[in-house]
């Protein structure tokens, strides 16, 4: 589904991504983790072309992201994305947030879009918040709306960029529960996160990044059981101490 080959990117002197290669198969959940500044957010933003890259290739469902002839808006419409800071549109109600791209990008009718929004809001447990504005919701509620907004496009894959990092601790699980459910239904997911419990539970593979490199790319059991690189060992021991 998602193929990343030799991805390389620099910001001036700073080498953000160093020949990264990995892939996500259809129906697979891949967790990307690593210390902050390791390039994992940049990597996931390259997948739907939000970040340009210097060399290497990314294909999603056989379509090359870096190819200038690729219709990027059309491709992005098929990939859902959830951001660290939710990025709901502050001037629209929850329902309008979920309907905007359905109507303007997919060309769905208003009724159709709103019906879809209603069923997705029910699914993330927020039917009663449909007419509020994002600023009136808690962080956890906002992030669940953001997930519903992405799902409304019937995506072939979902990208999560640190979806729980901006949340207060008591709200993390309500968002993770939705994500776990999604994974169990067979959604193809690429998730940048520090939530190792989530990784253990649903991830098929874990990719560990440090200083712009993919240091380790292993199935979940062996990543947690016997990480090969010292850097991954150090990272895990730091993070797992607190769980």
């Amino acid at each position: 589904m998602i193929e990343i080959r030799d991805l390389d990117k620099r910001y001036g002197d700073f080498h953000v991504l160093k020949r990264c290669s990995t892939s996500v198969a259809k129906g697979e959940v891949v967790v990307v983790c690593g210390p902050s500044g390791s390039g994992k957010s940049t990597l996931i933003k390259c997948v739907n072309g939000l970040e340009p890259f210097d060399s290497g290739t990314i294909t999603v469902d056989g379509i090359s992201v870096g190819d200038r002839r690729t219709d990027l808006p059309k491709l992005r419409a098929r990939i859902g994305m959830v951001f660290q800071n939710f990025e709901l549109y502050p001037h629209m109600t929850v329902t309008r947030n979920i309907c905007l791209a359905q109507e303007k990008v997919l060309g769905r009718s208003r009724d159709e879009a709103e019906a879809k929004a209603a069923s997705l809001l029910a699914r993330v447990g927020l039917s009663d918040q449909a007419h509020k504005h994002p600023g009136q919701l808690s962080g956890g509620q906002q992030q669940r709306v953001a997930i519903a907004r992405a799902l409304a496009m019937d995506p072939i894959a979902m990208l999560f960029d640190e979806p729980t990092s901006a949340l207060d601790p008591e709200m993390i699980s309500e968002v993770l529960d939705v994500m776990v459910e999604l994974a169990q239904e067979g959604m193809t997911m690429m998730v940048v996160t520090h939530e190792m419990g989530f990784a253990r539970k649903v991830a098929g593979r874990v990719v560990f990044m440090d200083c712009g490199e993919i240091v380790e790319d292993a199935d979940t059991a062996s990543f947690f059981g016997s990480p090969r690189s010292p850097r991954a060992q150090a990272f895990l021991s730091k993070i797992l101490d607190h769980v």
Partner: peptide, 8 residues
């Protein structure tokens, strides 16, 4: 980014 990500 969110706007672009949804295909706008």
């Amino acid at each position: 980014l969110a706007g672009y990500a949804s295909g706008l």
